[in-house]
Design a protein around this nucleic acid. Structure first.
Lengths: 118, 118
DNA sequence: CTGTATCCCATTTGATACTG
DNA sequence: CAGTATCAAATGGGATACAG
């Protein structure tokens, strides 16, 4: 088994990469926020607040900041009175669509599996 | 836009499915545990403890139970002294490989994006 | 409208010790 | 080896009030 050493290194790298990805999607709300913004292309703070059932303004604010730091969404302040703020996915953020789609498919299959082929 | 209503229903369903999936992968350790078990096909408690850096036996025990409840892993007790316990992925658990692979790829790209094309 | 600041509770996680 | 028990600490998250 001369492939074993590389095998191990690859596994470390894989774990790190998965960790990076999960870190970004972590928390109770991020995927829903992304889903909301992605779905409408461009969305305001209070719109997202309505889109995501149960989220508080505090949490939304916090999560949006983290998503911005991770360059997944872009925040645009419009000079209106009172101010309007748009959020939209960056190009990088849109690359998450594949993952969200996979998670959706898997989630549907999983529910079947757990509930016994409902 | 006569497609709007279905659009909305689909979004709810999608959110629910993604939620189901994230629920299962939730917590700090599950994906690493899955990754470990998957990688070696069959793995013992203490092996996983070593594979996943930083995890405590309490957490490992708890996470393994949840994974078992969700039918992602199977626990086998061998009648040795002292007892040996094997964990392996179920067929359903193995379907997570696609997602883990996607997360890995995305994580690598994300790191490039954040660190500025390292 | 778009947030920020507090306060406070619940859940999660870690450290350590112990059991069959 | 494969866990459990217990206590303590950290974190997450809701409610409410307030600010630009």
């Amino acid at each position: 088994m001369e492939c074993k050493p590389n095998f191990e290194i690859d596994r470390k790298k894989e774990m790190m990469a998965v960790h990076d990805a999960m870190d970004v999607l972590n928390g109770k709300w991020k995927i829903y926020i992304i889903s909301s913004v992605c779905h409408y292309n461009r969305r305001r703070f209070s719109d997202i607040l309505n889109d995501v059932p149960g989220i508080s303004n505090k949490m939304l604010s916090k999560e949006l900041k983290e998503l911005e730091i991770n360059k997944l969404i872009e925040r645009t302040v419009l000079d209106t009175h009172p101010v309007t703020v748009h959020y939209e996915l960056t190009k990088h953020g849109r690359t998450l669509q594949t993952i969200i789609h996979n998670l959706t498919d898997w989630g549907l299959e999983h529910r079947k599996e757990i509930t016994g082929r409902s």
